[in-house]
């Protein structure tokens, strides 16, 4: 048994998600190799080699892998996955994009977004916006699995794995990169933040949404948002927390002007401590909050900022 993990990286930096996926791979048992593909990936490969529990870091460094487009990435993985029993990646936007393409090319199914491992072929995952947890067994020769990173603690960085360059170049005539429009969110990354301050429709406008910043800065928190806030343009799309956005589990989640629809709860209900600030005492968010404060957010937030 052995696992190949697709390493996620952006702008020349290793993403935090990989350390969590390695933890899942180690729960499976067997050897763990990482695959870093891109253009100019030396620094990422070196950082990946320091993660604990890794046997080897395989690199594929070529212009065709720049921007990690799904078509060439899937072709590359198909060319080097034959020796492995498991293929894992984070259930991030790039993992979600690439992994099912590999699975289909290999003629095997995928299990998405696992939150626990019962046995090397048996996994738990949420379905119906987290209203139920399914346990599935996978009897395919190659088990393709995406991992909910918030469900597995990151491994440490005391390793020194071997780095090996692969000489595999595929061609890509299907897709070309046009451009990125990256959101300029200050503060920590939503996926790995210890504290998240999240705003909903109750904020009322983009200007008002900045009311969250004061508290966020004092707490070193990342900003999150409900779908309603993103749809209304108060916050950028990558900040949406929920069933169809990001799934987070910080130590502290402060929901401000968010009603608590099941689709939102699906993305944050595993947070350690939940605070809800809402003027409607019947709002469903209070049902899962450890500390609910009924009140007008326009009074509560400035008061909270000054008390921190």
């Amino acid at each position: 048994m052995s696992t190949l993990i697709l390493v996620e990286h952006r702008d020349g930096a290793l993403a935090a998600s990989t350390a969590h996926v390695i933890a899942a791979a180690r729960a499976l048992g067997g050897e763990v190799d990482l695959l870093v593909a891109g253009e100019g990936v030396d620094a990422v490969a070196a950082a990946a080699a320091r993660l604990d529990g890794v046997r080897a870091v395989l690199t594929a460094d070529h212009a065709v892998y720049a921007h990690q487009l799904a078509e060439p990435m899937a072709a590359l993985i198909v060319a080097c996955v034959d020796d492995y029993s498991h293929l894992l990646a984070a259930a991030s936007s790039s993992g979600k994009d690439i992994l099912p393409r590999v699975a289909a090319l290999k003629g095997v199914p995928q299990i998405s977004d696992i939150i626990a491992i019962e046995a090397p072929d048996t996994f738990k995952r949420p379905i119906y916006a987290g209203s139920a947890i399914a346990t599935l067994s996978n009897h395919a020769p190659l088990k393709v699995v995406s991992v909910r990173t918030s469900a597995f603690d990151a491994v440490a960085e005391t390793g020194s794995a071997e780095i090996r360059a692969l000489d595999i170049v595929v061609d890509n005539t299907l897709s070309t990169f046009v451009g990125d429009e990256l959101a300029t969110n200050s503060g920590p990354e939503l996926g790995s933040a210890r504290v998240i301050v999240s705003g909903g429709r109750g904020l009322g406008s983009s200007e008002n949404f900045q009311l969250l910043d004061g508290v966020a800065v004092k707490l070193g928190a990342a900003i999150g948002a409900s779908r309603a806030a993103v749809d209304a343009g108060y916050a950028s799309n990558d900040l949406q927390v929920g069933q169809t956005g990001k799934v987070v589990a910080p130590d502290l989640y402060i929901a401000v002007g968010i009603s608590g629809a099941i689709q939102h709860l699906a993305g944050m209900k595993d947070s350690k401590v939940i605070v809800a600030i809402n003027q409607d005492e019947e709002a469903p968010i209070f049902g899962i909050a450890d500390y609910g404060l009924v009140g007008d957010l326009f009074e509560v937030m400035p008061a909270l900022e000054s008390r921190l």
């Binding site: 451009g179 990256l182 950028s236 990558d238």
Partner: peptide
């Protein structure tokens, strides 16, 4: 819609 913002492909 990707982690980090928006990406355009052809």
């Amino acid at each position: 819609e990707v982690d980090g913002g928006l990406r355009t492909l052809a």
